[in-house]
Amino acid sequence: MAFPADYRYTKEHEWIKVDGDTGTIGITDHAQDSLGDIVFVELPKTGSDVEAHKAFGTVESVKAVSELFSPVSGTVTAVNDDLATAPEKINSDAHGSWMIKVKLKNPAEANSLMSAADYEKFVAEES
């Protein structure tokens, strides 16, 4: 399992990629695999605020509902609308299927999250 080395990861299985003061957020391949066939994604509106460790949306597979937790605090600058009509893209490419882009309140905040190696270890221990 390859988790991109330039992403950071949460214990709730979200990833974030930081470029300057922008964070791009999605769920990990491990998360999509646990959920199964994803059929529904509910995301916040552009301009709304998200808070670190707080729910910002929902992802649903045929059999389960899962809340999405924001890895960082900030303001939503873009939402991936493709996922509303094609949520199954998360199953086929979780690390490429971003959900929201956020203008970071504190660009250093993501540094405290898990690295790819740490996350891989975390997933191995959790299962």
């Binding site: 399992m1 391949d29 491990h30 695999d33 997933v123 299962s127």
Partner: peptide, 8 residues
């Protein structure tokens, strides 16, 4: 590609 979920 997919990570295996191996429950205990």
């Amino acid at each position: 590609m997919s990570s295996q979920q191996t429950h205990d």
